[in-house]
Design a protein around this nucleic acid. Structure first.
Length: 681
DNA sequence: GAGGGGATTCTTTTT
DNA sequence: GAATCCCCTC
């Protein structure tokens, strides 16, 4: 922001707010710093860390203690580290890394908690078999051990058939009496429970015997951040269970409370609103144990809670005894945007600009269905260029895949059998993650093939990015020139023609060409279109060799590979974030912490299974006070607040639904006159 | 036409 | 994995 001035009075008030934080730190009184969007929260957090360092560094060093700062995401941790600069006295990490750091070494205790958990799960599954309706058929079986034995013998067969359709499942599992297979879902529930009980019992037995075999070491448990579900029998667990175990361990062992609070006399929590209640409980126990020897500071904004698990409004009630410090200055946005944000958040935090000469900015609300025209209109209106880009916010990823021009790719994966079962959970991340290592296996393979193409054709690519150093050092100028001109022969209008051209070159006799291409192949066995096709079929459609569906599946894969290469380029551009376009697309959720000069918000009502009037409901109740919000309205309100407050100067909102008079009234109270003119450009 | 059973279809994000 | 949609049967 250029030419903006902060008046001495405002600066003074802002300094006074920090003094409140500082005195909490000095007096060791736990506090929550609640500040709205664009107020410079991260700045204040870093300032606090620096303050502690400046005043207590030597004391910390003497006692071999550290300041701990915990964040919700790795990106936030990285950001804070960068802003803070180099210091060994502050340890910044995610909540999960923090907890795992502290508990990992207590394997005996962890394994015993794990064993207990396994035993509880067994009891739960057994109880379900005794009471649940889906287990009716099982309870009527006289000799259950025969049924169980048959299941144990056919365990592998069961998992092979599990995801097939009803008819195929029945014929695959014909070793069972057909009366048991009357309702296959009931059968699956029962089978899953019985098999899990056996696996868990075996695990408990192995834990007791302290067995270490080639596959699994039963003397220790591991937190695996890559998986979304626990693998308890394999001694691995995921995110939620990590927090659960940590909480249990810390509650159970006072010594551990002492160890942690001795080690970290200051714990600062970033984005507290998204921190789960269980984590707050852990911090509370530590704080109660250590009393004034431990200071806990929470930084965040209750109205920016946009994830389910977050503690949000309930922090103060849950942690108790927190000094509340508020900051009402805004450093980000123009006046009109700040005002709108204040009205949307229906609590008593009212922001004002910190600048003397803050511009008014522009904010307009439109009703209409033509999103294309809307975007194009503002592209002209605001003279959008790469240097003055336009950021468009949508609710759903699917809308973005559509806008950004790769819906065909998204749909191909979405409609494959692999992603229609339990793996549906991974669909979004596997296709849309902006961290290449988080993409799915197949997506990653495709990504690097396109990555090569992109690097080859991009004039800004540095030679070492394209060609491996080991290859480079063996080449003279002429050879390098010839290599590049060879590589440039790899071309194609569809993915299939491109990849076959790529594979042809890969299999050529020319050794340096081969070695230049190999780094872009992430599955070494795949070196032809045939093997690529087989790979896709195998991974996404299962092995339907003797099935009617086989030819149908093959044609689906063929169609996918025959898609115009343009779709793949668009997808690559979105995922790699290297997009040189002047318009960028985001989900509302994905913009957390961002700020945009020119912003468009598209408000659509369809969001999730039971949400056909997501924003409509909010608009009806827009001027409600905080206490009257239902959870659904609260969710929409917070999300809308986050979206609106990203804007710095120019903001336009398009509502694609229909508003009644009362709703129009609510909207114009905040945004002024509603424009219902369609966009004829 | 009720309900049983199978098929189909789901939000966002992070760890 | 789970809610909901849809078809079939009684």
């Amino acid at each position: 922001m250029k030419g903006l001035e902060i008046s001495p009075e405002n600066k003074q008030v802002e300094d006074a707010i920090f003094t409140e934080i500082a005195s909490c730190i000095d007096d060791s009184r736990n506090f929550v710093f609640d500040a709205g969007a664009g107020s410079g929260k991260t700045y204040s957090l870093v300032q606090s860390l620096k303050y502690i360092l400046s005043k207590y560094a030597s004391k910390l060093k003497i006692h071999n203690q550290l300041i701990r700062c915990i964040t919700y995401t790795n990106i936030a941790a990285k950001e804070i580290k960068e802003r803070l600069g180099n210091t060994e006295l502050v340890k910044v990490s995610t909540i999960h890394d923090f907890l795992w750091d502290e508990i990992e070494i207590y394997q005996d205790e962890l394994v015993s908690i794990h064993k207990e958990y396994l035993a509880n799960q067994i009891i739960k599954y057994e109880k379900e078999l005794e009471t649940e309706k889906w287990a009716d058929f099982y309870r009527e079986i006289c000799d259950k051990s025969v049924f169980k034995e048959l299941l144990y013998e056919n365990e592998e067969l069961y998992y092979k058939n599990k995801n097939k359709n009803a008819a195929d499942f029945r014929s695959g599992m014909s070793c069972f009496d057909s009366t048991y297979l009357k309702n296959i879902n009931n059968f699956k529930q029962v089978a899953d429970n019985i098999l899990r009980i056996r696996k868990y019992n075996l695990a408990i037995e192995n834990i007791t015997k302290k067995i270490k075999n080639a596959k699994i070491d039963y003397t220790k448990v591991t937190y695996n951040s890559q998986i979304s579900y626990d693998r308890l029998a394999s001694m691995q667990f995921s995110h939620d269970t990590l927090i659960k175990y940590s909480r249990q361990l810390i509650y159970k062992y006072e010594t551990l409370q002492k160890i942690i609070s001795d080690k970290y006399p200051y714990i600062l929590v970033d984005e507290y609103q998204d921190t789960s209640s269980e984590v707050v409980e852990i911090l509370k126990v530590l704080s109660e144990y250590a009393s004034t020897n431990l200071l806990i500071g929470y930084y965040g904004d209750r109205k920016q809670k946009i994830y389910d698990n977050g503690v949000g409004d309930d922090l103060i009630a849950q942690h108790g005894n927190l000094i509340v410090i508020k900051k009402e200055y805004n450093r980000r946005s123009a006046k009109k945007i700040i005002d709108a944000g204040n009205l949307i958040r229906n609590d008593n935090l009212k922001q004002k600009t910190i600048y003397n000469n803050c511009p008014n900015g522009q904010i307009n609300f439109y009703i209409g269905q033509n999103i294309d025209n809307f975007i194009n209109f503002f592209r002209r209106e605001w003279s959008i260029t790469q240097k003055n880009p336009l950021d468009c916010l949508f609710l759903k990823n699917e809308a973005i895949a559509d806008r950004a021009g790769f819906k065909e790719i998204y749909d191909f994966f979405k409609n494959s059998p692999y992603y229609s079962g339990i793996n549906y959970t991974y669909l979004r991340e596997h296709i849309l993650s902006k961290e290449a290592e988080k993409l799915g296996k197949i997506q990653s393979f495709l990504y690097y093939l396109i990555d090569f193409k992109n690097k080859l054709n991009n004039p800004d690519t540095l030679i070492p990015e394209l060609i491996n150093k080991n290859v480079l050092k063996e080449l003279n100028m002429d050879e390098l020139k010839s290599l590049i001109s060879n590589l440039r022969k790899i071309q194609g209008d569809t993915f299939k023609t491109y990849s076959s051209s790529f594979f042809r070159m890969l299999l050529s006799e020319n050794n340096s060409v081969k070695r230049a291409l190999i780094p872009f192949i992430k599955e070494e066995k795949i070196n032809s279109n045939e093997s690529l096709c087989a790979y896709l079929l195998d991974e996404l459609f299962g092995n339907y060799t003797d099935d009617d569906k086989s030819s149908e599946n093959i044609s689906k894969v063929e169609n996918f590979l025959n898609l115009d290469i343009l779709y793949f380029n668009n997808w690559y551009n979105y995922v790699s974030d290297k997009c040189s376009e002047d318009i960028k697309y985001h989900t509302y959720h994905g913009t957390k912490g961002d700020e945009f000069d020119n912003e468009l918000i598209i408000m659509e009502n369809d969001f999730g299974r039971n949400n056909k009037d997501f924003f409509s409901n909010l608009i009806t109740n827009l001027s409600n006070s905080s206490e009257n919000d239902t959870p659904k309205i609260k969710e929409a309100r917070n999300l809308f607040y986050v979206a609106v407050t990203r804007a710095k100067y120019n903001l336009a909102i398009l509502y694609t639904g229909v508003l009644n008079d009362e709703q129009k009234h609510q909207i114009s109270d905040i945004f002024g006159e509603i424009d219902e003119v369609s966009f004829q450009y």
